[in-house]
């Protein structure tokens, strides 16, 4: 019994080592270990180049869109010349804008169309594709306003006119972006306390002092007043209250 078991152990360890080695090789080959520099876009450097970085990186656009022969994703239309209408997106947007103007009865510029296809992707769905493009301003992608503008500049640079001034974000989008930044903070949700169907609990507002969590979002991060916890799980019986 002993000898064969030893053989099995050696065999097993060898298999695991091969597995580890494969992981090692993949990381070396794909270069995934190297940190990709994430471009921070501020008001000053909203450029097509910054937008390109967003398109192929944080924005995850390239996981659905190819640009000409660069990339090979096929979920979304190719943004280069091989895309719909045989035009790159910068030029295609003009065509689409005319169509949108007819459909909505409102004036539409190419930039308006590009912005709309980002912040309201379902408004116009390219034929042959599913309505599955995510709004990149919302989680999980969450581009900032600057990043959205930059990526639109990049799309313009693909066969259209690059013009930052032409990019007008619809009213509400800005507010939406601000709201999204705030919602990041999560507050405990306590159905039993809020619903209190059985009427067994005291009104949570009557809890005071130590066990109540307080949050000061404007100071960034979570803070708590008082650290005492009641036996039996004070944090469960407490409810956050927005200042």
């Amino acid at each position: 019994m002993r000898r064969p078991f030893l053989g099995v152990v050696v065999f097993t360890v060898a298999l695991v080592l091969v597995f580890v080695w494969i992981g090692e090789v993949i990381t070396r080959v794909s270069g995934e270990g190297e940190r990709r520099s994430s471009v921070v876009i501020t008001g000053g450097n909203i450029t097509p180049e910054a937008g390109e970085a967003v398109f192929w990186g944080k924005g995850k656009c390239s996981t659905c869109h190819a640009v000409g022969s660069r990339g090979a994703s096929i979920r979304g239309p190719n943004q280069g010349e091989s895309g719909p209408l045989g035009m790159p997106i910068g030029a295609r947007a003009e065509e689409r804008a005319r169509e949108r103007a007819r459909a909505t009865g409102k004036p539409f510029t190419a930039s308006d169309y590009l912005v709309e296809s980002l912040v309201d992707p379902g408004a116009f769905v390219v034929q042959g594709y599913k309505n599955e493009m995510p709004n990149p301003m919302r989680p999980p992608i969450r581009l900032t306003l600057e990043e959205v503008k930059a990526v639109v500049l990049y799309l313009q640079s693909l066969g259209g006119n690059v013009d930052l001034a032409a990019i007008g974000l619809p009213a509400g989008v800005e507010a939406q972006a601000k709201a999204a930044a705030v919602v990041e903070e999560w507050t405990p949700y306590l159905p039993a306390v809020q619903g209190d169907r059985l009427g067994l609990r005291a009104d949570p507002r009557h809890y005071s002092g130590g066990s109540v969590l307080h949050r000061y979002p404007q100071e960034g991060g979570r803070q708590y007043r008082g650290g005492s916890r009641q036996p039996g799980g004070g944090s469960q019986d407490s409810q956050s209250t927005d200042p």
């Binding site: 695991v16 080592l17 597995f19 580890v20 080695w21 494969i22 992981g23 090692e24 993949i26 990381t27 070396r28 794909s30 995934e32 270990g33 919302r138 989680p139 999980p140 990041e184 999560w186």
Partner: peptide
């Protein structure tokens, strides 16, 4: 929780395959 509760800890990075293979091994 995807797109709802963000991981803001210092460990919220995606491991490389090399690291993954070592841990899984």
């Amino acid at each position: 929780v995807y797109a709802v509760l963000q991981d803001t800890s210092e460990w919220a990075w995606t491991p490389t395959n090399a690291y993954m293979a070592r841990v899984v091994g």
